[in-house]
Write a protein that binds this DNA or RNA. Sequence first.
DNA 1: CTCTAACCGAGACGGTACGTCTCGTCTTTTG
DNA 2: CAAAAGACGAGACGTACCGTCTCGGTTAGAG
Lengths: 204, 204, 204, 204
Amino acid sequence: MTGGKTVETSRVGRPRSEKTRLAILEAAADLLVEGGFSAITIESIAARAGVSKVTIYKWWPSRGSVAIDAYFHRFRQTLTFPDTGNVAEDLLAQMLILIGAFRGRAGEIMAELIGQAQSDPELADTIRTGWMQPRREVTALVIQRAIDRGELRPGLTIPILMDELYGPIYFRLITRYEPLSDEFAQELVRNTLEGVLSTRSSIK
Amino acid sequence: MTGGKTVETSRVGRPRSEKTRLAILEAAADLLVEGGFSAITIESIAARAGVSKVTIYKWWPSRGSVAIDAYFHRFRQTLTFPDTGNVAEDLLAQMLILIGAFRGRAGEIMAELIGQAQSDPELADTIRTGWMQPRREVTALVIQRAIDRGELRPGLTIPILMDELYGPIYFRLITRYEPLSDEFAQELVRNTLEGVLSTRSSIK
Amino acid sequence: MTGGKTVETSRVGRPRSEKTRLAILEAAADLLVEGGFSAITIESIAARAGVSKVTIYKWWPSRGSVAIDAYFHRFRQTLTFPDTGNVAEDLLAQMLILIGAFRGRAGEIMAELIGQAQSDPELADTIRTGWMQPRREVTALVIQRAIDRGELRPGLTIPILMDELYGPIYFRLITRYEPLSDEFAQELVRNTLEGVLSTRSSIK
Amino acid sequence: MTGGKTVETSRVGRPRSEKTRLAILEAAADLLVEGGFSAITIESIAARAGVSKVTIYKWWPSRGSVAIDAYFHRFRQTLTFPDTGNVAEDLLAQMLILIGAFRGRAGEIMAELIGQAQSDPELADTIRTGWMQPRREVTALVIQRAIDRGELRPGLTIPILMDELYGPIYFRLITRYEPLSDEFAQELVRNTLEGVLSTRSSIK
DNA sequence: CTCTAACCGAGACGGTACGTCTCGTCTTTTG
DNA sequence: CAAAAGACGAGACGTACCGTCTCGGTTAGAG
């Protein structure tokens, strides 16, 4: 996310052109939407943005980093999750918002970005810290509060519980085994909280 | 998985060389282990196997397909899962075997293959049908039997439950947020079955 | 002159395309005539010849070498110098033929090629062995015979005498101080043979 | 030689920095000596001189013009030729001085500059007027006096005679066919004056 | 003693060409 | 007819300089 940094201090020399920065992000985002990650080449971005290749290389280290910046630029979404105090409701709301974002082009592109990240550690890091981490923090907060209120088991490992919620969603996003429907999110959250044992056997 | 098919019918002309096929798979597997998916190029395989590029193109449609064939060739494992009749034990055993396989090089390579599959539908399909499906079928059987015995809730959607088990594992494989430890598998299976609500609130 | 070599032995693999070789030389020669040496870029040749850059790099080591090959391809001239037995006549004929070739585009281009050769030793060598040497050999022969016949001084250093003939011509070609006129050649040859001392002083 | 001009009129505004001008010429000369003309790039000069590119462009129109200025700055030599009244001695002295200057790095660089001048008319002009012309004028004077004294043939075309002297030297400098030895200069001057016909045939 | 015009550094930028890489196809000879 | 060898067109890579363009900060004579 190198290229995203704003020029803080006014230093000597010609300042960075904000117009150019935006033209690059817009061009990359367009290419991403139209042809997916494989359509992102430094040359195609440069040509579309009317910008020199060197300028792109100057501010971004790889095509992956331009792609993720362009993704955030285009699909930046608010993280305003509700906080009703009811853990089931809050978690479901969060999962529905994520699933909603992943239906449509944004989801396909995120899948490709995650795919690319498997052979681009820097991209992987940017996705983790720039995309997943903020969401996980909100979710962790909701879970922690529910533990504090005594709604959830105290011995719980929070990262594992979060993997139980996010894991299946990203698994579906990536394997496309089954659709990312609202019903899926509902049963996922319910199952995760209540378990899947039959009532009889749960009373031990 | 085109290249993996054995030559059944004896047709006219010079038969396909089995030695060549194996040389290609061994070379590709070596490259995969040494340098990951990005080290797999048709040219590098051809050079290493002492084989012409055209011969590879003749039997495999893409580098992804050679890679997955080479992966299966090198890391093929038995699917002999225990069947004790205890759903918790059986599921845990299955997850532990998968996690064990994913620790080490095989896991890293599978992550890369899944990554590549995001921009290679054919590779995605081969991974689903050749790798995931067999495991899911065994898991589905165990779950179905537990439902039949009344251990699990009858209304359960089996694919969702399987996503709850496999999803977090693949999520950790791909995001590398946290390690694929045995403890993780244990808590994952326990949480999935019993839920995470505190005992007090679960008696409603 | 690497690319000029003809494929002698019929070896395995696809043979070199003669059509491609000629297309490259024609394109390069056209560019040379139209825009001089600076118009010769590997990219422009490739574009004009409908050929890949790699193919050019495969057969020629530098743009200079393509240029000189293209020059010879386009301006190859016969070396049929007359041999009358009269040294003055023969030398003048040779110089007139060379000067004639250097008037017009071929001379301008040769000047540029010699210029480039100052920073490209390989090009320099090709010009020496492929262009100058054959002419010098013919000239050396004429001179040697004149020495044998007793027309020229026996103690003469032949290379120096040849430099006295060719040097002024190339000097004019390169500095453009004065035109390469036929009168120039006539006085040059006469002066070189007879000297410039006044008759009075020459009889010492 | 634009950049070499001294600031005559004192105009308003900050005057041109002499320190900067010298830093540029020194840097360029160093680069020229170390890596030849190809090492001369505006960027490398700017970096080495601690100067902005724009400042260089402001005072010199091209890299060729900086190069030639740097050459004169570093290798400026006196034009004090002896004038003994003996044409053979005087011409030989002049040629020996020139040949002496051309042995060593200065000659190699001059060859490269002349080479570059083939595709840079302005550079060609600067070399002619700034380097060759002063020498030719001295030589022309010596020749003219010899004609006046009756030592040389009256019908002689002086520029042609000068090309007979300078041409072979520059030819050797540029083609590196043979070394620029003192013996070469001696025989060159002698041959030029006396001719190469054998005594017998010269008396016709 | 301020004003102001020109100089100068640093560095961003669009552009052209470089030489390299790998792809997937094509065209031969060899077994 | 399979396979090896290798030529080839295509196109992106990342780099080097080009020449131009802001900027901010001198520097010295003119008012």
